[in-house]
Write a protein that binds this DNA or RNA. Sequence first.
DNA 1: TTGAAAGCGCTAACAT
DNA 2: ATGTTAGCGCTTTCAA
Lengths: 358, 358
Amino acid sequence: MTEAVSRPTLEAVAARAGVSRATVSRVVNGGDGVRAPLAERVRRAVEELGYVPNQAARSLVTRRHDAVAVVVAEPETRVFADPFFALQLRGIGKELTAHDNQLVLLLTEGRADHTRVARYLAGGHVDGALVFSLHLDDPLPGLIRDAGVPTVFGGRPHWSADTGAPDPGVVYVDCDNRGGARAAVRHLLDLGRRRVAHLTGALDQTSAVDRLDGYRDAVAEVPGAYDPRLVVEGDFTPAGGERAMRELLARCPDVDAVFAANDLTALGALRVLREAGRRVPEDVAVAGFDDMAPVAEQTDPPLTTVRQDIEGMGRLMARLLLEGLSGGRDRARTTAGAPGARGKGVILPTTLIRRASA
Amino acid sequence: MTEAVSRPTLEAVAARAGVSRATVSRVVNGGDGVRAPLAERVRRAVEELGYVPNQAARSLVTRRHDAVAVVVAEPETRVFADPFFALQLRGIGKELTAHDNQLVLLLTEGRADHTRVARYLAGGHVDGALVFSLHLDDPLPGLIRDAGVPTVFGGRPHWSADTGAPDPGVVYVDCDNRGGARAAVRHLLDLGRRRVAHLTGALDQTSAVDRLDGYRDAVAEVPGAYDPRLVVEGDFTPAGGERAMRELLARCPDVDAVFAANDLTALGALRVLREAGRRVPEDVAVAGFDDMAPVAEQTDPPLTTVRQDIEGMGRLMARLLLEGLSGGRDRARTTAGAPGARGKGVILPTTLIRRASA
DNA sequence: TTGAAAGCGCTAACAT
DNA sequence: ATGTTAGCGCTTTCAA
C-alpha cells in the first residue's frame, strides 16, 4: 500500500519563497492583491514543494467544505440495480464537479445508519445534503433537520407544503408525477381502451401515490372507466410488476390496457403478458413511466412511457443546493423562477413518449 | 432550504458541565479515565447543548478523517449501468460502515477530473483511497501515488508486480480471471466442442487480457483447438457482445461454443445467436463470466458462467485499506495470509456455475 | 501591497 | 483523575 507522506505546509512555502504565510495564502486563493513578481515566486515555491492546502485547516476557519452529501435511504442493492439513481447521481456529480464540490455518498440501510448519517451531517463534514427516496415512516428528514444542514430533497417529501405538514420551508425537486400519469392513462383511453389498469409503485413513496392520483384523474374523466379492482399494488421492481400483473389477470381477465408505475414494473408486466399469451399492444396496451433508456427501448415491444429528465433532476437539485449555500439572495429567485415552481418545490415537466407498446 | 446553525463548541460544553475542555474531550472520545459522575455531568451537558464535535478541528490534530475515497475512473454512465460496480460499492460501503468510515465517491470522466481527484486526495480529505477500473493509459495511478495516499486497487493494475513494472508495492484485489477463464473454456472443450471462440472484453483492462490468456491456456491443451480467428474483440457491454458475435458468425460460421468475457457480452451474443437461428446450447454452447444475478439467471437459456464474489472483493479491498491505515503490523500478515496471495495482490478464487447454456 | 498576530475547535502531552 | 497548555495549518483582521 502506498504510504502517506507528510506534506509541506503553508509555512514551508512561505519560508522558501521568503514571504509571509499571509502572502502565500493570498496567492493560493486567487492571488489578488499580490504583486506579480512576488506571486510568481510563491507559485514557484508551491510547485517545487508540491504544496497542497490542508483542507481540514482551511475548513476550520472558513467553515466551508466544498463537499455535499448525497443521502440515499434505500437498501444499497436496489440503489444501484436501479438506473434511476444512477442517472440522478450522474446529474448531481456533474453539477457538483462543475462547481468544484465533492460528492460524499451516504448509503443507509437501517436504523443504525440513520443516526450515523445524522451524526455525520451534524459533524460539519459537508456544506449541504441532497436526500433521496424517502418513505412514509422515514425518520431521516427529522434527523436531518436537527442536524441543521441545508438540504434539498429528491422527490416530494411526505411532509412537504402540499400536504400541509410540519415543514413548509422544505426545498425539493420532483417531476410532474400526477400530470405524467394522467397523460399516459389518457393516451390509453384515447386508444379506445376501456379496461385500463394500474400497477402501482411502492405506495409509501409519494411518487407512487401521485402517479396513482394521476391515473384516477384520467379514468374519472371517462364514465365507467373506474374500477378499483383494476388497481394492483406493485413496488417499482420487475418482480413486483410480475406479481401485480399475475394478480391483475386473475382478477380482471378482460383488462385491455395497463399503466405501470415505472418502466421496471412494465417490464415485469410484459413478461407475464407474454407468458399468458396476450399480445402487446393488440390485446393489452402497456405504458410505463420514467423512460429509462436501457429498459424502455429494449423491451419487446419497445415501451410507450412517460419521460422525465432524471439526470436533469439531479443537476437541478445540486444547483439549488449550491445556490442556497452561496448566500440567500439567489435562492428565492431561482426556486420561484424555475419551471413549475410551487412553493419551495420545483416540479419538472414530463413528456409522453410513444413507442410500440401502446 | 434548512439553514445552517452555529453549533456549540467543546468549550461551551466544558463551561456548562463545570469541567475543562480536556475532560469533555475524553468523555466524548470514549470516556476512559474519567470518573463516572463527572462523565455523567458532561454527557448531560453534551445532550442539553446538542453538541457535536467539529470534525475539521479534530482532523486537523489527529490527521484522521475516518473517510475513504472511492475513485471510479469510468464514464459515469457505465459505472452505474453496470451491476458490477454496484456490487463492489455495496461491499465497500458495508465494510466501511462497519468501521465507522465514510465513503467519498469520486467519479472521473476526463483529464480535468483526474487532476481534480488528485488534488482532492492530496488535500488530505480522506485517509485512503480505493481505486477502480484502470485502463492502460490511465494517468490516475501516477497522480495518486504522488498524492501520497494509501491506496488499494480493484483489479490488477497494469504496472503491478506481475508485469514487472514500476511499482511493485501496489496492493490490489482481483479475482482469478485467468484461472476462471481456463475453467470455463475447458468445460466447453469437455463438452466435445472443438470450435470454441472467445469474445474478449476491453483489452485495455487487465481483466480482459487475463481472461484471454486463460482462454489461450485452455485451447492450447487441445490439439487443433487454437485458431486466432475465433478470438473477437468486445468491450464488456451487451452492444459490444452483439457486434463481436456478428463478426464471429461471419468469420467462422462453424463455431460451436463461445466463451464471452463477461455476462453482459454473453447477453449480446445470445441475442445475435437467436436472431441467426442458432440454438443454445445445441448448436452453440455459451459461457460467460461474473455471474451477475440479474443477468446470468435471467438469460434465455440461463447462462453457464464463472462466478466471482464481487461484493466480497469490495469488502476485502476496504478491509485491506483500513487494516493498512491502522498501522503496518497487521497489513503484511493479512495480505500474505489471504487466499491466493501473491506479492501484494490478493487473488480471489472463482467457481464455474453450470446452467443451461453450456 | 505585505506582514504580524489572533484565533477556528479540537487533541494530547504534560502537570498537578 | 483532572486541568493547563501548546499547537494542528490555515485565513483574516489589523498595522505597517
